[in-house]
């Protein structure tokens, strides 16, 4: 049984706003299936005495000084938005009618 179906890849592509053709979906579904299966093996490798690891790097306290950097302009900020209105991101209705 595969770890991810072609339909699920198509769904994820839509959520990610990636326009994938039928051949791309076929190819990616196969590749993602292999990747997920490989990653799943890691879970078998961890034994009870290995604590859950959230970070692979032995680092702490990586901070940035409190300094302003120039932001994007509003035009550039919005030019990838699926919809915009009045210099704001336009999003579909959030709650259905009661």
């Amino acid at each position: 049984m595969s770890a991810i179906t072609r339909d699920e890849v198509a769904h994820l592509a839509r959520l990610s706003r990636l326009a994938l053709g039928p051949e791309e979906l076929d190819a990616l579904a196969g590749q993602l299936d292999e990747i997920i299966s490989a990653v799943a093996q890691v879970q078998d490798a961890a034994s009870a005495d290995v604590p859950p690891t959230s970070h692979a790097l032995p680092l702490t306290n990586v901070f940035r000084p409190d300094e302003v950097r120039p932001p994007l302009g509003v035009a550039e900020a919005l030019d990838q938005a699926p919809a915009a209105e009045d210099d704001r991101f336009r999003v579909p209705r959030i709650l259905d009618e009661e």
Binding site: V68, R69, P71, V74, A77, D86, R88
Partner: peptide, 17 residues
């Protein structure tokens, strides 16, 4: 991120990637 935090700026002018 390094975006400024001032109150009352025009919409989406204090945003970055």
């Amino acid at each position: 991120c390094g975006c400024p935090t001032g109150f009352g700026a025009a919409p989406n002018t204090q945003v970055c990637p």
